[in-house]
Design a protein around this nucleic acid. Structure first.
Length: 424
RNA sequence: UGAUACUGAUCACUUUG
């Protein structure tokens, strides 16, 4: 368990083996701890193997299965999770709220709201389970995916109706779902309710935490409402003296994203500086968002300058997204030279261009009528071991339309299906 | 006694339409 806490799955497994070697047969809890450690480290297959091993020795309990379900959920394997859920049922172990919450969360992480809601329904109607706060929260979180904000709000009302007090996590999930589902006003209203401490029916609510604010700012960001995002940041700062809730690196990331979506690079740079001054350890996400703010204006020199600065001044290593963001600014600026130069540079820096990098460059070539160069890049990405994806082909086909090349477009479409991709 | 041993929920960045 200790090794699991330290996210050291190797040590956990080794320890289990050592116990056996010393003639101390690990009990169920030892196995469960070990599977949990593997799951936390993303090693779902090792957790599943341990479950098999366990089955050969003694009957697993519901926690054993739940540990594996969580491992699968965290590794974005929702279908395997459901298979395991069925398996435990067949083995005569009744899934509990934790089992279902894990599976619901698995679908949430995979961006699939409907299956998550189906599982919720199944838990209630077929298993007779009474959903708790966490199960509702997981389900509300899943609703942020297909614009199901209204379903999220219905679930929130339903749990209140059943006398379950929403926790701060529940409320945060609801704010996030509303923000992502286009219900900006409702999202902000939920935050206000939390600040007041009561909902519209005067039922008590938990006070907001930093995640609440971040989710609300992110909702503004989505709409490019940069002034509102900054205003919320200021309010948060002002309140922090007595709420104890201060902006963190995610807050700054979200505010910077708001500036980026609005293409406001000057405010973005100011926010960046303010974050530094406030002693926030800005990370790559913050700088990447700031780089994106140069995109609408196509200010690629400034973007590249910030790319250098983040490493040199702030000691933050640019990552693949940093480079891809810069490439996008070059694309906007329609600057082939700068883009291709960056492609080389990132390779030299040990960050190999990925599908997104190539897609951006292909888009640049195609947009500027340079179809030959675009296809050259398509070939190059294959040579570099980068799989073209649907976006790659959609980009190319789009410009075939632009340049009236229907035969070429059809050829590309056939290639899409030949590669086993599903045209959208 | 070790052993309040083991499992579930929320926030920010990049590519086409």
């Amino acid at each position: 368990h200790g090794f699991g806490r330290l996210a050291d799955w190797r040590m956990a497994v080794e320890f289990l083996r050592e116990m056996e070697a010393r003639g101390i047969p690990p009990n169920l809890v030892c196995y469960n701890s070990c599977m949990s450690a593997c799951g936390a480290a993303g090693k779902w297959w090792i957790a599943v193997n341990l479950l098999e091993e366990l089955k050969a020795r003694m009957p697993p309990n519901v926690i054993s299965y739940n540990a594996c379900l969580t491992a699968l959920a965290n590794a974005n394997r929702p279908h395997r999770a459901v298979l395991l859920l069925r398996e435990m049922q067949n083995a005569g172990i009744k899934p509990d709220l934790v089992s279902y919450s894990s599976c619901i969360s698995a679908f949430e992480k995979a961006g699939r709201a409907k299956p998550a809601l189906r599982l919720f329904h199944e838990a209630v109607t077929e298993q007779g389970l009474v959903p708790d706060n966490i199960m509702y929260s997981a389900c509300i979180a899943a609703c942020e995916n297909q614009g199901l904000a209204n379903v999220a709000l219905r679930l929130l009302a339903e749990m209140k109706g059943r006398g379950i007090r929403p926790s701060v996590v529940t409320m945060n999930a609801a704010i996030s779902a509303c923000g992502k589902g286009g219900k900006l006003a409702v999202a902000q209203g939920l935050l206000q309710d939390m600040e007041r401490g009561f909902d519209r029916d005067d039922r008590p609510l938990p006070g907001p935490d930093i995640v609440s604010y971040n989710a609300a700012i992110s909702a503004f960001a989505r709409r490019g409402r940069w002034i509102d995002a900054i205003t919320t940041l200021k309010r948060l700062q002002k309140l922090s003296t007595y709420t104890g809730t201060s902006p963190n690196v995610v807050t700054y990331g979200a505010v910077l994203d708001a500036c980026a979506k609005a293409g406001r690079w000057q405010p973005a740079l100011e926010v960046l500086q303010e974050g530094r001054d406030a002693g926030i350890r800005l990370n790559a996400v913050c700088f990447n968002a700031a780089i994106n703010s140069f995109c609408p204006a196509g200010k690629y020199e400034l973007a590249l300058k910030l790319l250098r600065e983040m490493a040199a001044v702030d000691g933050v290593r640019p990552n693949i997204v940093s480079y891809n963001s810069c490439l996008k600014v070059c694309e906007r600026a329609e600057n082939h030279g700068a883009a291709l130069g960056l492609l080389e540079e990132m390779s030299a820096a040990g960050i190999e261009p990925d599908t997104v990098s190539f897609n951006t460059c292909i888009s640049l070539c195609a947009r500027t009528g340079n179809l030959k160069e675009a296809f050259k890049l398509l070939r190059l990405m294959g040579e570099k071991g980068c799989q073209p994806d649907l976006v790659t082909f959609n980009t190319l086909m789009n410009y075939c339309a632009e340049y009236a090349k229907p035969q070429l477009a059809l050829k590309l479409l056939r290639r899409v299906t030949r590669l086993g991709l599903k045209p959208d």
